[in-house]
């Protein structure tokens, strides 16, 4: 079992890193032929930095759009971020001071994360318009995340696993050694789902993560009258 999970995590990590790297490289290489920022847009690069920061940190456009989706989406994403930070403690030794600092928030964050996910799932089922646009994968993605959250919370609050052994397992993986992984059901489910998530990340809608940084309507500067913008393939037309 330990070997199986070790191989699974090596595979998932490679898929995540390589897959995401290739996708980001593709986005970066693809030219944007025209200036299409959604106006009003910032006229300077630093202005764009602020616009993007507001989008990424507080989901500004979503807030303008729909308060319910914003509430649940924000709870989920902030909860996930804190929980992920908290998980650093299983991969590093000695533990960075700020990971300890995040530690207590991470526990509460798991509830926010779960409530957010359940809220999004309920909306997807109950709201006619959102049900209409949902594919099986949209529900499965939420269920996958809910599964990860529930199995993790089960280990934290109800049936603790040998967390020291888990840490030894992952520290080992980082040094290319395979150590014994506790065989608690929750842990195996949790890790299995996480690995699945890592594998599908670069081939699914989870690409919205890197995607937003390559969204011309958000990252472009409004300066088309001052500065000529020309894609390489469009420059060919001028020859």
């Amino acid at each position: 079992m330990s070997t199986l999970y070790a191989l699974l995590f090596y595979f998932a990590t490679i898929m995540l890193v390589v897959g995401l790297g290739l996708r980001i490289a593709k986005y970066a290489r693809t030219p944007a032929p025209l200036k299409i920022p959604t106006m009003p847009a910032p006229t300077t690069r630093s202005g764009v930095f602020w616009r993007m920061s507001r989008e990424v940190l507080v989901f500004e456009s979503l807030f303008k759009s729909n308060k319910w989706i914003w509430v649940f989406g924000y709870m989920f994403h902030v909860g996930l971020a804190l929980v992920l930070l908290r998980h650093f403690r299983y991969f590093i030794e000695p533990i960075w001071f700020w990971v300890n600092w995040v530690q207590p928030f991470g526990i509460y964050a798991s509830f926010a994360l779960l409530i957010g996910l359940l809220g999004l799932l309920v909306r997807r089922i109950v709201v006619e318009r959102i049900r209409y646009i949902s594919s099986p994968s949209d529900y499965l993605m939420l269920l996958l995340l809910i599964g990860i959250a529930l199995s993790g919370m089960n280990m934290k609050f109800l049936a603790p696993t040998d967390i020291v052994a888990v840490k030894v397992f992952f520290l080992g993986l980082l040094r290319l050694q395979i150590n014994e992984l506790p065989t608690s059901a929750s842990l195996l489910v949790h890790l299995g789902l996480v690995a699945t998530l890592m594998i599908i990340f670069p081939i699914s809608k989870l690409l919205h993560g890197p995607g937003i940084f390559f969204s011309p309507t958000r990252y472009q500067v409004d300066n088309s009258r001052e500065k000529r913008h020309l894609a390489p393939w469009a420059a060919e037309l001028e020859k």
Binding site: R23, K26, Y27, T30, P31, A32, P33, I36, L62, N66, I69, G73, L120, R123, R124, V127, R129, I130, I133, S134, S135, D138, K205, L207, H208, G211, I212, F214, S215, P216, T217, A231, W233
Partner: peptide, 16 residues
């Protein structure tokens, strides 16, 4: 040829 087209095809999460 068009980054917007490529990214927008990929990035939608069907949030509604």
């Amino acid at each position: 040829k068009n980054r917007a087209f490529q990214v927008y095809l990929d990035a939608c999460v069907k949030c509604g």
